Amino acid sequence: MALSNDVPSGRTSKGPALDAPPSPGTAALFTFFERSGTLLRLARCQLLPLHPAGTCLVRCGLLALQTATPRRQIVGFWHPGDVLETANLPALPGLAVSATAPAEVWRLRPQALESILTERPDLLRLLLRLSAIALKQLLVSNAMVGKLSGEERVASFLLTMAMRHGRFGSNRAEIDLPLSRADMADHLGLNADTLSRIMSALRTAGIIEPLGRHRLVVRDWRGLRDRSPLADALTTR
């Protein structure tokens, strides 16, 4: 069956998604970062240098914001096309930004960013919009961990990853998962055994089918949506 980037029916259309992929206009932003920034290539688990401060644009891969309070907790992600302002990161114990899979990140020094203010106000507006999307994603992540059951957290996470890393067919999606099960468990506030049981239950119910360690197929998109109270917010573009 052919897959595409079009989301299956069953979603709503109440405005921009909290985690919607950036618009095609982001290509101009990538070009600016490529011309004026520094490309950082990160291996899996490698930390992104947070000093000196700068503005980062994720080119590919996946970055995780992690803390140690007291154990490791992944509190949010930056996907390809997302913007990260290192100077705006909260002062949390053990805070770090790491790559959950090989990643490439363009980094701009503050001096280079200043030229956007005068030369490209359109790019400045786009930067602000992408920064706002990243903040909303973090708020949704906190809502998932703080308010939802284990199954609801997993379903919400898979919907999020589908919207950012998925290819869609009729009532189905194929999702790339550029992170380990341990990363996923740390993000959702679940232990490894609980996460494994939930994933197995979703598979038995015919909702998902794993395709190796870093890819799965959602065989019943509507069924997955029904398991997440945040489905409308997560799947609206």
Rank of each mutant, 00 (worst) to 15 (best):
N5Q: 05
N5G: 10
V7G: 02
P8D: 10
G10A: 10
R11F: 09
T12H: 09
S13M: 06
K14H: 14
G25R: 03
G25D: 06
T26D: 06
A27F: 04
F30G: 03
F32M: 05
F33R: 00
F33S: 00
S36N: 15
G37N: 02
G37Q: 02
L40S: 04
L40C: 04
L42V: 07
L48M: 08
P49H: 05
H51V: 07
T55E: 05
C56H: 12
V58W: 04
C60S: 10
L63S: 05
L65V: 13
A68M: 11
A68W: 03
T69K: 00
T69F: 03
P70I: 09
R72Q: 10
Q73L: 14
V75P: 04
V75M: 11
W78G: 04
H79E: 08
P80R: 00
P80E: 02
G81F: 02
A87C: 05
A87T: 07
N88W: 05
N88S: 13
N88K: 01
A91I: 05
L92V: 09
G94R: 13
G94F: 08
A96P: 10
A96R: 07
V97M: 13
A99K: 01
A99E: 13
P102A: 07
P102I: 10
E104S: 01
W106C: 00
W106D: 01
P110S: 13
P110I: 04
Q111N: 07
S115P: 01
I116A: 07
L117S: 15
P121S: 07
L123R: 15
L124N: 11
R125E: 09
L128Y: 11
R129L: 05
L130Q: 14
S131E: 06
I133G: 01
I133S: 05
L135Y: 11
L135H: 13
L138I: 06
V140Q: 03
S141Q: 02
A143D: 10
M144S: 06
G146K: 07
G146V: 04
K147M: 14
S149L: 12
S149I: 03
L159I: 04
G166E: 02
G169M: 04
A173H: 02
L177Q: 14
P178R: 01
S180D: 15
R181N: 13
D183E: 12
M184T: 14
M184S: 08
L188D: 11
L188H: 12
G189W: 12
A192E: 15
T194F: 08
L195V: 06
A201V: 12
L202R: 08
R203K: 15
T204S: 10
T204Y: 14
A205L: 12
G206F: 09
I207N: 07
E209A: 14
P210W: 10
P210V: 08
L211R: 14
R213C: 06
H214S: 11
R215V: 14
R219I: 07
D220Y: 12
W221G: 09
R222F: 04
G223L: 15
L224Q: 02
D226C: 11
D232L: 02
A233T: 13
L234F: 04
T235W: 05
R237I: 10
